[in-house]
Structure formats: structure tokens, C-alpha cells
Design a protein around this nucleic acid. Structure first.
Length: 565
RNA sequence: CGGGGCGUGGCGCAGUUUGGUUAGCGCGCAGCGUUCGGGACGCUGAGGUCGGAGGUUCAAAUCCUCUCGCCCCGACCA
């Protein structure tokens, strides 16, 4: 490709809207263009890189027996109400009406459609196992798109669905896909980490995410310093630091004038935070919920949502708390009624805790569960923190930030039972199909690859996903000898099957070299009066500090072997 | 949705507080010339409904009202 003809210009200044490195570099390099919040065009260079990622994914999917197909983006709303996933997705579901006022959705994922499709085509155990995938655009009306391609409303996704006869077979498939995913990330130059995850709106039992560890990541990962336990913080469990065990004392009221927060109360009474009980109020699907947790811990809203099995969860407003007859700052689990009560097991660690008295300026001390109060549900709803104990081996937990570039779920029979996708087993008995689903965000991978591979000058493409392999950069194009040698070298490199970006623009050397760094192709080939004086060209890997000279004669063979698979 | 910020040629900005000539500057773009190994220089030139609507005024980028959009921080996800 001739740079003089390439659609998409490099910018000298980074557009102000970009905050993330990947977003800045993609814009600056002219690889993407924003149309609206979370909606982007891919320009030719960006699109080439994206297609390379797609093809690597295709190869690995095909290698484990996946068959590619294509399903509709536009779907009737009914198939979503049937599984109640319209509620699970809520406002993230893009909906529209056709001319006859039939309600349609722009698909955010395809479990319903594929299940319906497979139901019609699978009858026997002989048809299983089955792996079907597509690479397609998905729509999700995210509350807040951000970070360029990191979080968008229209995005390319590879979604694979697996169909097995039973749980054991699903387990085998699930592990196989995880390994394929690991190969994909590795091939794309993205070191990834598999972590346990919450299954969210997709549903299902077991779930794992693939994280690219980087500071700009939106997710927090908790992992063990010793064993291989790792989980998204949404899901992560931990062994909490124990509280002091002492003889339970009779409960009594203490004055805590003006003390509202846990810090204030603990400080005022001269006790550690873990000797207090924190009370928090949520509204779950319109119902007020009381939540108690040890004072030094925070509520994990994902866990709470799962424990309550609700669709919508938010903190209660001050007014709602007041209306319920509670005193914020001194709210108490003792004597609470008229609403669901949930507590984290951490309140059972230690004795003689301090809790609110449900009146201003007062708390109870020597509160003990279950002697002094009861709850309807005792469930792990705490955020795991670095420094706490690993749930597997007890060693210290650590934390890191990551970008979620893939997510896999064991769905089990959730969809097949609801939609009647069954098969007849060897004994002639009808059984539900065991399903799994597996997604990779492709644009997100592209962004993550840049987050992970760049320097102050620009992008450093991992070879397998670089838009072009070679950046041919003649300096002084008005020099006849340079121009003609560059032109023939361009042809010779292409004849060897190399992908070449040819900077044939009559720009000054500074501009061309800086653009080469910004665009980030793996190998730069400079040809100039200087190199021609010794009948050579200059080679420099994008990551290398120094360039080397190589004879012009036969350089195309040499480069071909460099990029040999 | 809550909090913060911002909308002025393709990009980055100034001008808005305190209304007042043909709305500026840098980059980029076009033409000509000189340059040519890390974002060169000179000359000439094109390009703007100041996000939109309404209002106040002799006069609005600037003041008022409404509205749309974008970014960042939080609750959601590949």
C-alpha cells in the first residue's frame, strides 16, 4: 500500500477527547474515527489489524472443531422476553420498532437465536458435541462508553456456542475452549490471565474471564501470591482477618454524639473498625433491603445482587432511608423489621461488636450475632481485598488491574430447558443439551494490544496483528536513484508475499520517520542516498534501539525469512 | 442516572469574566520556490451557520432561557 494513497491521515496533535493511550494512538495514527459516543469507524489500517485478529481467532476456533456461521443482528423482542433476558439486560438492550410497530432488538449476544437454531437441527446424541461460532457486530447501550475502543456500544465480537450431551462433556469442551483462547491471546502478543468471574446477564454457573493486565484496565483482579487462584473482584472470595474472640457481654447503649461514619464511631470509642457493624441500605427491584457487614469491609454489589437474585440494585436514597424509619449513621440491625435483612458472614467473626442504635448520637456495644439480632440471609457479600487470605491456600492475596478481553460461561441447561433444545440419548431418553458460550471482544483486543505494546513515539504492533509487516521508507524521494530503487524494492517485497506499507510521499525525513514510529509496523526499511552509497538499505525493528545495514541485493529474501511463519 | 468539564475551519487552542471593526493564532490543506536522516523555510491562497433554537439589545462567539452533543469520575460489560 502506498502511503500517499492511504485513506486516513496521521495527526500531529492528539485529539483532546482521548484519554487512554490506545485511544490517542489509534486516533493520531488515523486508524479509527468516532461518529458518536461509543461508535467508531475503522479506517483501512485499523481495519487490517482487526481482520488479522479475526483470522487468528478463526484459525483457533476451527482448530478445535468450531464451525463458522452468521446469525441476524435484528431480532424480535419476543425471543428475549421468553427467557426474561430483556429484564437481565435492561436498558443496555437496544430496541426499535418496525413499520408495523413490532418490537425488535439489536442483538447484544446470541444465546436465544443459536439455541432456537440448534433445537431445529439437533435431535440425537450423534449430533453432539457441536461448536458453532460467528464473528459479528453486537449492540449494547452501555451506560457509559469510554476509553476509545475499550468500551463501546457497537462492537465486533466472536461468539462461540458449545452443545454437549452432559455436564462432563461440557467440562471437557469448556477446558478445550479456554486453551484455544489462551493460544489466541498469545498469538496476538497479549499476555492474558484467566480469572474466575461473575456470569452477569448471560446467566449460567461457572464463568471465567481473560484479563490483559494493565493499569488502564477497568477491572480489578484478585489473585493469590502462592497458588493459582485468581478472580475478578466482583467474584473474588477471601479469608477475612479474624476478629477478637472474647466472652460475650450484655448489650448496652453508648452515647456517640455526632458520630456517623464507621471511622468516626470507631475512633470515638477507641476500637478497631472490625469491631463494628456497618449498616447499608439498598433498593432491590423496588424493595428496600437492609445489609449488614463488618465495619472494615465494603459491600460487593455484584455478590449482593446474586444473593438477592434481583435484576436491579442500587443504594437507597437518604429520603428512602428516612421514610423507612431508619437513622442514617446510626442504623441498626437490632429490631429492624418490614424489610429483607442480609448479612455478610464477617459479622460472625469476633464478639462484642458495636452497631447502630437506630437513633441519633447513640450506638449499641457488645452486640453479638445471632444473640441480639437475626437476618433472613447470611451470604458472602464482601469485597475481597489485597492483603486478605486466599480462599484456597490461605496465602496473601494481591490485586491488579486488567482489561477483560474474553469471557467464557458454562451455561448448562439454562437456555436449552427454557427453549426446549433437547436430544435423544443412546438409551432413547430425551435430555436437555448442555451449553457453553464464549466471547471475545475484537476491537477491545485491538485496544488492549496497543495499551500493552507502545512507546512514547507510537504503536508497536505485535507481528501477527500488524496491519503491514514492513514499512518501506525512502528518504529523499526526489532523488531519482532513491525513488527508482524504492519502487523496485516495493515490487520485489510484494512479490515475496510480504505486506508492505510504502511511504512514497515527498515528505521530509523527520515527518516520515516519525510517522513510521507512530504507525508502528514491525520492521522499518529505510532507503536513502546514504544507504545507496554502500548499495544497502537500513533495517530496524520497531522495538530495536539501533538500525542495521543490509545489502540491497537480495534483501527481499532476507525479509521473507524474517516473517516466515 | 448522580458529580465534574467542554463545544469557535480537518487537529490543537485564544477570544466569552467587562457585548462593539472584515472572529484570531499554531498545525494541517492548495500553489510556487528553496531545503532533505528525526515533525524544515519563504511567499501566495482556500477554508468558520462560533453545537442548535429562541430571547434581550442599535449591536451577541460574548448576556438570558431552552435544547443537543462530547469527554472524565462513579453504578453495567466483550
Amino acid at each position: 500500500m502506498r502511503l500517499s494513497k492511504l485513506f486516513g491521515k496521521t495527526l500531529r496533535q492528539t485529539p483532546a477527547e482521548a484519554e487512554n493511550i490506545s485511544h490517542q494512538l489509534l486516533l493520531k495514527a488515523g486508524m479509527i474515527h468516532q461518529l458518536a459516543a461509543g461508535i467508531y469507524s475503522y479506517l483501512p489500517l485499523g481495519w487490517r489489524a482487526l481482520r488479522k485478529i479475526e483470522n487468528i481467532i478463526r484459525q483457533e476456533m476451527d482448530a478445535i472443531g468450531g464451525q463458522e456461521l452468521m446469525m441476524p443482528v435484528l431480532q424480535p423482542l419476543e425471543i428475549w422476553t421468553e427467557t426474561e433476558r430483556d429484564l437481565a439486560f435492561g436498558k443496555s438492550l437496544f430496541t426499535l420498532s418496525d413499520r408495523r410497530d413490532r418490537r425488535l432488538v439489536l442483538a447484544p449476544t446470541h444465546e436465544e437465536v443459536i439455541t432456537e437454531l440448534v433445537r431445529r437441527n439437533v435431535q440425537s446424541y450423534r449430533d453432539l458435541p457441536l461448536l458453532l461460532y460467528q464473528i459479528q457486530v453486537k449492540f449494547r447501550d452501555e451506560p457509559r462508553p469510554r476509553g476509545g475502543l475499550l468500551r463501546v456500544r457497537e462492537f465486533g465480537m466472536k461468539d462461540l456456542y458449545s452443545f454437549d450431551a452432559d455436564e462432563e462433556a461440557l467440562d471437557v469442551t469448556y477446558r478445550k475452549v479456554i486453551q484455544a483462547y489462551q493460544r489466541i491471546y498469545e498469538r496476538c502478543g497479549l499476555p492474558s490471565m484467566v480469572v474466575e468471574a461473575d456470569s452477569g446477564a448471560i446467566g449460567g454457573k461457572e464463568s471465567h474471564e481473560f484479563m490483559v493486565v494493565t493499569e488502564s484496565g477497568e477491572d480489578q483482579v484478585i489473585y493469590c501470591s502462592k497458588c493459582d487462584y485468581s478472580a475478578n473482584v466482583e467474584k473474588a472470595e477471601s479469608v477475612k482477618l479474624p476478629g477478637e474472640e472474647e466472652e460475650p457481654l450484655p448489650m448496652e447503649e453508648v452515647a456517640t454524639p455526632g458520630m456517623k461514619t464507621i471511622e468516626e464511631v470507631a475512633g470515638f470509642l477507641g476500637i478497631p473498625k472490625q469491631k463494628t457493624v456497618k449498616a447499608v441500605f439498598y433498593v432491590a427491584d423496588g424493595e428496600m433491603v437492609f445489609v449488614a457487614i463488618r465495619g472494615d469491609l465494603e459491600v460487593n454489589e455484584v455478590k449482593l445482587k446474586n444473593a438477592l437474585q434481583c435484576h436491579e440494585l442500587r443504594l437507597a436514597s437518604d429520603e428512602e432511608v428516612k421514610e423507612a424509619g431508619l437513622v442514617a449513621g446510626s442504623a441498626s440491625p437490632i429490631g429492624i423489621k418490614g424489610m429483607k435483612r442480609v448479612a455478610d458472614p464477617s459479622i460472625t467473626l469476633g464478639t462484642n461488636l458495636v452497631a447502630g442504635a437506630n437513633k441519633p448520637d447513640a450506638h449499641f456495644k457488645n452486640v453479638n450475632y445471632p444473640r441480639d439480632f437475626e437476618v433472613d440471609l447470611l451470604a458472602d457479600i464482601a469485597i475481597a481485598q489485597a492483603g486478605e487470605g486466599c480462599p484456597r491456600c490461605g496465602s496473601t492475596l494481591l490485586s491488579a488491574r486488567g482489561i477483560e478481553v474474553g469471557h467464557v460461561f458454562k451455561l448448562g441447561t439454562f437456555f436449552s430447558e427454557k427453549l426446549g433444545a433437547t436430544y435423544v440419548n443412546q438409551s432413547g431418553v430425551e435430555r436437555p443439551i448442555y451449553m457453553g458460550c464464549y466471547g471475545i471482544g475484537i476491537g477491545r483486543m485491538l485496544a488492549a494490544a496497543i495499551e500493552q505494546n507502545h512507546d512514547e513515539k507510537g504503536i508497536i504492533w505485535p507481528i501477527p496483528i500488524a496491519p503491514y509487516q514492513v514499512h518501506l521508507c525512502p528518504l529523499s524521494m526526489d532523488n531519482q536513484e532513491v525513488a527508482s530503487n524504492a519502487e523496485t524494492l516495493y515490487l520485489r517485497l510484494q512479490e515475496e508475499g510480504l505486506e508492505v506499507l510504502f511511504d512514497d510521499r515527498p515528505e521530509s525525513p523527520g515527518v516520515k520517520l516519525n510517522d513510521a514510529d507512530l504507525l508502528g509496523m514491525p520492521l522499518r526499511v529505510v532507503i536513502s542516498p546514504r544507504t545507496l552509497s554502500t548499495s544497502s538499505v537500513e533495517l530496524k525493528g520497531r522495538r530495536d534501539k539501533e538500525a542495521t545495514l543490509a545489502p540491497l541485493e537480495g534483501v527481499e529474501k532476507r525479509l521473507k525469512s524474517l516473517f516466515a511463519p
